[in-house]
Design a binder for these strands. Structure first.
Lengths: 202, 202, 202, 202
DNA sequence: ACTTAAACGAGACGGTACGTCCCGTCTTTGC
DNA sequence: GCAAAGACGGGACGTACCGTCTCGTTTAAGT
């Protein structure tokens, strides 16, 4: 995630005291710790500043809003993954699914819901979310489908939106709505990927 | 949905002026109207009271928190649907899927996300959500699967949790994450139900 | 004090169930008890009704406002005293002073201040207060002064307003502002009456 | 009056943004203006904040309750007056009396009563009131009496509490209870001071 | 070494909404 | 047909956060 969404059109010659990168880490750590301790709804910016031993201004110098701060602290390590290449459509789908399941599992459901709610309460945040997370997955799925066409597994690439929903929906539903047992995730991943693969392959 | 979550375990002999059921409706209507007009994040209790032409106390007499109020107003008319009986597993699954898609479509994504976030930020609300919406769907799915076993379509009923996720996950994902075009919902429903049916029937 | 300030221009033929006079006492008792326990500022009508074992409507059927209720409960037994006749101006003044001191001593300072504040926050209440309590005292003082003129102690009756203030002011100040020891009241009464008498007699 | 009754016993090194003293004045001004316009009973904290162009938090950062705020705003400019020295007991007493009459005349009776009621409904406010206003007057009276003893006017200083009540009681009674004409105040002051002086001088 | 511009901790600021409390009125059911 | 019980509209209270804004101090880079 971009650490300094505020400002910085061109990397102009810095003047004055530079930002302390330790503070970046302190903010992220404090945010994650407080999310784990008290949950998304009870997280306050003052508490983060206090826990991190810094002033609120240091936070708002880096992030425009509380939501940006949380976004950066939580999705920070969700680095973009290159499209998997397992050699078969089914293998690729299962890999995509497994990676998402793995990434989503690291956060508590209330945090994910809070984040999603905040994202969808504001059009510009929603656009950023779509432009990064959603587009990234769409690209991965498109790539995998294109390779399947190249390999001759598929005659033509189907609507990738629907494949996206079929493939990732069950994982989200399991983790966010059913709050299901994470031990069963591997089975769910396998079943989901299998169902999608068979449907696509007719 | 239970209209008076506050108090009253046994329906004891009422004394004093009874609650005005018109106010129940006025609260729910005003809440829904304001959610539609201004969105979940900008809904205030004062605005609901003002719009409904009542005092705030009448709201807090019925609901312990703003979240309870919204919960009641939005999940209120999601009346339980009896399990469909289309004569075939595939038909039943498609019917379940279509009903959920229909119900979810009536609410804006930001409302659904706000609701889910609030539900999962509070244990008691979460329990009530699970106890109503989730259990209700689980029962519907279990019934449909049992009938398929009776008809000989299935040898044994599979894990209904996973079926639940496979069947409803894509719809949620489409509406809540992808914010996809609702015109494509029928196709998504058909595809999803088909995929699940084929997977179950091997 | 007038027990039923609401309604009742003429004592017309009562229709229906008559008011329960026990309730009058219950209200007054509960009011006095709660004033003693929690003070004027924390007295609520609901608490009085609850303590008296009656409904709030029974209170508001008798008194137009909370203030009227307290007024009735606290100044109820301040029956009008006839002007004293001790045979001398000084004796009369001391008697007036002593009676007021005695009556004021029965109430806590916070109650008196609360009452006075409520009285002066509303013009109509203020008028009623002046029309009863103040006029009554003025009449007593005028009578005593007139008798002193008759007896030849005074050449002419002085401005009774100033005598009023000189005579009762120190008592009020002692009890309401200084919150002074009530054991010293007799001495204060004697000194005050003496000073006023000597001033009037030159 | 102490501007910041909340916290801070020793004047330790201030950290962070200091309080804006303009806001202190704005609060006091707005409070006084609204008291004059709408009366004590109809004064609200929101109205004060709005009139002063500040947030409610700025008020509650300075004062624990609405009452503290009003207390500070109204007793604020009653600056302590040094004991008068007119050369005679009678002259001094009349000066004391006149100063009090002057100060009390600036406020409406409903404000004074409201203030007194609030002061006596709370022990801590009452203590502060006694510790400032009452003690200050007591000191002035003690000083004047001591000087009269030095001058040989009095053999020994009498009980200053009783002198206090005799001297200021009539003024309070006239302004707060009788709501008497302020044009007659000078005469009342002269008469009262004269009566007290003659009584003390035998 | 000295200037300067920005970052820093602390916390006050305007604003908004929350959930509570109480007043005086209204509406049931039961005696 | 009045009384208790208690719901009702209205409105103020004091609290909690948000995102911004001073304060006085600290830290580098550039003179």
């Amino acid at each position: 995630m971009v650490p300094y969404p505020k400002g910085m059109p061109e990397p102009k010659q810095p003047v004055g005291r530079p930002r302390d990168s330790q503070i970046d880490h302190a903010i992220a750590s404090a945010t994650r710790a407080l999310l784990a301790e008290r949950g998304y709804a009870k997280l306050t910016v003052d508490a983060v500043a206090s826990r991190a031993g810094i002033g609120k201004a240091a936070i708002y110098r880096r992030f425009a809003t509380k939501q940006e701060m949380i976004f950066a602290a939580t999705v920070h390590d969700m680095e973009a993954q290159p499209p998997p290449d397992a050699g078969s459509l089914r293998g690729d789908l299962e890999a995509i699914c497994a990676i998402i399941a793995e990434q989503l599992s690291t956060a508590a459901p209330d945090v994910l819901h809070g984040l999603l709610a905040d994202i969808h309460s504001d059009a510009s945040l929603g656009a950023r979310f779509t432009g990064t997370f959603i587009e990234r997955e769409r690209f991965v799925i498109d790539t995998v489908l294109a390779r399947a066409v190249e390999r001759g597994e598929l005659a033509a690439a189907p609507d990738s939106g629907i494949v996206h929903a079929l493939l990732l929906g069950p994982i989200f539903y399991w983790l966010l709505i059913l709050i299901g047992d994470r031990a069963e995730l591997p089975e769910l991943v396998r079943t989901t990927a299998g169902a999608v693969a068979e449907t696509l392959l007719r």
